[in-house]
């Protein structure tokens, strides 16, 4: 199995140092503050259903843009204005997986959600965030398949 991208390993290591619930919340809120919605050159509202993340209660969407080096740049929209966790997840996925080797992106486990948000996250919330990871994985796998054919 391919290793995780370095930037993702660093981010997960940051969360290993979190000791309290409030520390985790503050860190994730800071991350969510860097969220930038998908640029208009990629998509405009109403967003096509094929880009919607299944089971995400925050109405998240994911797009990928092929880069000259063959990697992907990921873009996100989070339509629920209260969807802070989804925004934080989008920032983490973009900052750590955009530009990373696709073989590595394709193997990232949805369990990173539990390492980032803590194991006590509700099932509904966790499911939606894990689906964001799986959607990014699918984009990477699909691109790898295209490159191989």
């Amino acid at each position: 199995m391919a290793e995780y991208p370095d930037r993702l390993k660093d981010t997960l290591a940051d969360f290993n140092f979190v000791t309290t619930r409030s520390e985790r919340a503050e860190l994730l809120i800071d991350i969510a503050g860097r969220f930038e919605p998908v640029p208009a050159r990629i998509a405009t509202r109403p967003y096509a259903e094929e880009y919607r993340v299944p089971a995400c209660e925050s109405d998240a969407y994911v797009w990928s843009e092929r880069q000259p080096d063959g990697t992907l740049k990921f873009h996100f929209a989070v339509e629920n204005p209260q969807g802070l966790s989804a925004q934080a997840m989008a920032v983490i996925l973009d900052e750590t997986l955009s530009g990373a080797p696709l073989e590595q992106v394709a193997t990232v486990s949805p369990d990173i959600v539990l390492r980032i948000f803590g194991s006590e996250i509700s099932m509904g919330k966790g499911q939606g965030l894990m689906e964001m990871v799986r959607t990014v994985q699918r984009h990477a796998r699909s691109t790898l398949a295209e490159q191989a054919s």
Binding site: S22, A25, I29, Q82, K125
Partner: peptide, 8 residues
């Protein structure tokens, strides 16, 4: 449900 909302 969302643990970030109160703190935000």
């Amino acid at each position: 449900e969302d643990p970030l909302l109160y703190a935000s």
